[in-house]
């Protein structure tokens, strides 16, 4: 009996895998995504040096056999610092996205379901956030809370949730009018049951796509705030902060600012490819 139930699910999954295999860019995205997670988990095994180990005789050495990406102004190995930095960036990127997703989803669902005055107040607030260059807002909030990576994460989460609130609200409003919701209502399902068992899960596809794009965006903006001087503070091996210090040695030590930036580029590109791929796979109009 259960086999009959599982069959269509398995068929759908097999079809998704087939679609992934058809798209080389999605494959690259998934590869980068898995790769960077492995690098972050196994950082101590991959990095040849301690990221904060100072080695005065080897200041600002160009890339070589011993130091793949060269050394910085204190003789620290840049490759090891970049490997450890992936932990900071990934943690920040995922935390911001997950907080924004949870807060935004709750507000979006409430807004769609309660409606009325509460809906217009919540959406007005969301509009204020959306109708504003968010880096300016994030700069102001981080400046208030004080410098540091934790406060950067808080600031970016505060400015990020409205995207999800808007997304979930519009999804929920359109799903609410579907015939199957009416059917379940006729069967006597309670309001909460309708919202959380029947509507919410069906809102998730665009949210997942948005989230996979946003992890990359969050990593990029964290690096940007660190670059401004608000995020991670040196000597933390954060990529944006490394670029800032590296920029003081641009003319003589090109490798210092170059490699952390390449790392950001690759990781953000990976998440963008993943998001684009997911969108194609999850879009029912493109399936068959």
């Amino acid at each position: 009996m259960w086999k009959e139930d599982v069959k269509p699910v398995l068929k759908e999954m097999r079809y998704s895998l087939h679609m992934i295999r058809q798209s080389p860019l999605t494959m690259i995205g998934i590869g980068i995504f898995l790769g960077i997670i492995l690098v972050a988990i196994f950082a101590p095994y991959i990095a040849p040096y301690d990221p904060n180990e100072i080695n005065p005789p080897a200041l600002l050495q160009p890339p070589s056999q011993q130091h793949f990406f060269g050394t910085d102004e204190a003789g620290r190995d840049i490759f090891s610092r970049i490997v450890y930095g992936s932990r900071i960036s990934l943690k920040a990127g995922f935390t911001i996205t997950i907080i924004a997703m949870i807060v935004g989803s709750i507000i979006g669902i409430i807004s769609a379901y309660v409606g009325g005055v509460l809906d217009s107040i919540l959406m007005r607030i969301a509009d204020i956030f959306l109708s504003f260059p968010w880096i300016v807002m994030a700069m102001a909030i981080t400046a208030v809370l004080g410098r540091g990576i934790t406060n950067t994460v808080i600031a970016l989460s505060i400015v990020w949730w409205p995207i999800y609130a808007r997304l979930i609200r519009s999804q929920a409003l359109s799903i609410r009018e579907m015939p199957y919701i009416e059917a379940i209502k006729a069967l006597g399902a309670s309001r909460l049951r309708r919202i959380f068992i029947h509507i919410f899960p069906n809102c998730m596809a665009p949210v997942l796509v948005q989230a996979s794009l946003d992890v990359g965006g969050a990593i990029m903006w964290c690096a940007a705030l660190s670059f401004i001087g608000l995020g991670a503070q040196p000597p933390a091996p954060e990529w944006g902060a490394m670029i800032t210090i590296g920029s003081h040695y641009l003319r003589e030590s090109w490798w210092y600012a170059t490699f952390p930036g390449i790392m950001i580029l690759v990781v953000v590109l990976g998440f963008n490819l993943l998001g684009d791929g997911l969108r194609d796979i999850l879009d029912p109009n493109l399936r068959r």
């Binding site: 990029m220 690096a223 940007a224 670059f227 670029i243 090109w254 600012a257 930036g261 580029l265």
Partner: peptide, 23 residues
């Protein structure tokens, strides 16, 4: 355009500076 979207703008600036100001 994918690369352009994924690139930190300040890093691009520094790379151009290395190229057209440094080298």
């Amino acid at each position: 355009s994918l690369i352009g979207v994924s690139m930190p703008i300040f890093w691009l600036g520094f790379m151009l500076l290395i190229l057209f100001y440094g080298i």
